[in-house]
Design a binder for these strands. Structure first.
Ligand SMILES: [Mn+2]
Ligand SMILES: [Mn+2]
Ligand SMILES: [Zn+2]
Ligand SMILES: [Zn+2]
Lengths: 147, 147
DNA sequence: AAACTAAATTATAAGCATTCTAATGTAAGA
DNA sequence: TCTTACATTAGAATGCTTATAATTTAGTTT
């Protein structure tokens, strides 16, 4: 069984444990998310599934994403004024985003505890967490620029 | 002359140099921004000025904020699904945000070059910049929680 | 297998921040 | 003072997301 398939099975088990019904639409949204490496938007998921489910409402996609969020199966990524993106990788990781094409790529970095600690000292806040994104140009767009 | 007053004068000079007309509304939006420490939203600016300019359109606030952004007089801060906030402090600094009351406080930290460099190596991106926000509970809200 | 019922789906309306449009007004130079 | 390009205004439009209410259905109970 591939990693995405395994994650899907685990997610389905978690949903059942939480008393959430497994509908065909819900299953499809979850399956698409688990197999996607692209941090898709709600609308991208909706469009990707419209062949399989021509009558599915966009509200169903949003409803299900909210269910998955509440249970902790996915993360919501919010960037500026555009639409939210959804990440089925819930382990600790950061994102680097291409300024040209918008591609979002995972990367790991040993936690920024020092920053949190300094912020706490300087501001008197009781710090809970942080968010970090790095921006730049991806390899594909660097190549495009050369030609 | 206070620091906000001085920044306002400098900003007005920059605007004139760029061939941008100084209208009463534009002046008021700029003055409010420069004197505010609160990273206000467009709507907060609009409401703060409605006594002085009862007929001002909310579009005027947005139009002027865009002009200021284009010239580099202010920074736009985008957080999740809520509305943009605007920061007249264009020098390098980070923000820490209260989970309870939403307060946004500036803090400084020696740049995160190492993170940018590692991200570059691992992903092959050509890195341009990054964003970081720290979240937690502010001192006021910590006090409130005690009582 | 049929009935039941709470939950899910659907189509559509509504909400909110932001931008667009077109008419009117005005800052600043000639 | 005249001129005109730029700015403001009110309101419509847009894009993403959530709410509503009717219909359908997953999963349990009989
Ligand atoms: Mn990710
Ligand atoms: Mn700031
Ligand atoms: Zn790219
Ligand atoms: Zn607070």
């Amino acid at each position: 069984m591939t990693v995405p398939e395994q994650r899907l099975q685990e997610a389905l088990t978690t949903l059942k444990k939480s008393g959430v019904r497994i509908t065909p639409q819900r299953h499809a949204v979850l399956e698409y998310l688990m197999q996607s490496m692209k941090h898709p938007t709600a609308d991208e998921i909706y469009k990707a599934l419209e062949d399989k489910f021509p009558n599915m409402s966009v509200a169903t996609v949003y409803n299900n994403l909210r269910v998955f969020l509440d249970i902790g199966l996915v993360r919501e990524l919010t960037y500026g004024d555009s639409s939210s993106r959804f990440d089925c990788n819930t382990s600790d990781h950061y994102h680097i985003i291409c300024d040209e094409c918008g591609k979002i790529v995972d990367f790991h970095y040993p936690s920024l505890n020092e920053v949190e600690q300094l912020a706490e000292q300087v501001t008197g806040f009781d710090v809970s967490n942080h968010r970090l994104e790095v921006y730049g140009t991806c390899e594909d767009c660097q190549q495009m620029a050369k030609h």
